[in-house]
Design a protein around this nucleic acid. Structure first.
Length: 257
DNA sequence: ATGCCGGCCAGAGGCCGA
């Protein structure tokens, strides 16, 4: 089965591109971030027309996440990240699909740093680690995927110097991400591309796409049960160059039977 | 560069992102 993640940057504005990608690559599970849609205006019927069932957690204007599954209804397990009842951002949803637990996350950006938004990011990462420890303890096949808004290492960015003051690559952000890996989770794309140089995001501004000025912030973290079955992982880079594209490209991992 | 681009809501232009 193919598990994919795509920060879509507006599900309504991107719908033709999204339908195109689903039909062309046909992932078993597609996790979306930044749907920028309220729950009542999520275009579920458009996905059902091409055989995908969905669950989603939206809000007005920004954020928002969804899980699409090919031919089956995702069984919702959680629609918020535990640990802070005052956090109302739509950034987390979790479901079972064909016996695999899927968590779809949109981790806070954290800019500008330092400041309250950066503090929120780091607190969110602590809460995520706690939730992932709960999932780990269940010993189920599990994938935690999405826009982590963390550039894990210098090899994951076109220019470490240009991004040095950005929240995405601060030592605290990286340390929090590294703790997830130290807990035993497998970064699918990094494992199969250990030399780096793989990007998942290119800014709309300053000619970042034509200059290939990108970085890797969309990640697929696998429990041991899935990591052992991983056969391939990659980035659908070409979609970043199409008309009305998101600023992210889809990422995916292939899991064998 | 406190911007650049672009979506959202709203119905102009500010908020948000990375």
């Amino acid at each position: 089965m193919r598990i994919a993640s795509f920060n879509i940057n507006g599900v309504k504005a991107r719908l033709p591109r999204l339908i195109e990608w689903l039909e062309e690559t046909r992932p078993a599970v597609a996790c979306l971030q930044e749907i920028k849609s309220q729950d009542e205006s999520f275009p579920a019927a458009e996905f059902e027309k091409i055989g995908y069932r969905a669950i989603w957690h939206g809000q007005k204007g920004f954020n928002g996440v969804a899980i699409l599954a090919d031919g089956v209804e995702p069984v919702e397990a959680q629609r918020t990240l535990p640990g802070d009842p005052e956090d109302l951002h739509a950034r987390y949803i979790e479901a079972d699909v064909n016996g695999v637990r899927i968590a779809c996350i949109y981790l806070p950006n954290g800019n500008p740093q330092p400041g309250p938004k950066f503090d929120y990011k780091l607190a969110w990462m602590d809460r995520l680690r706690a939730r992932m420890a709960e999932l780990w303890a269940q010993e189920i096949p599990c994938a935690v995927v999405g826009d982590f808004n963390v550039i894990p290492e210098d090899k994951d960015v076109w220019s470490p110097a240009a991004m040095a003051s950005d929240a995405l690559m601060q030592p605290e952000s990286r340390a929090a991400y590294r703790r997830l890996l130290a807990d035993g989770w497998t970064d699918a794309i990094d494992t199969l591309n250990p030399r780096g140089g793989v990007w998942t995001f290119w800014d709309y501004q300053a000619g970042a796409w034509p200059r290939d000025h990108g970085f890797r912030i969309d990640h697929l973290l696998l429990s041991p049960e899935l990591a052992d079955r991983m056969t391939a992982a990659g980035v659908d880079k070409e979609y970043r160059g199409r008309e009305k594209a998101s600023d992210h490209a889809p990422v995916w991992v292939e899991i064998g039977d």
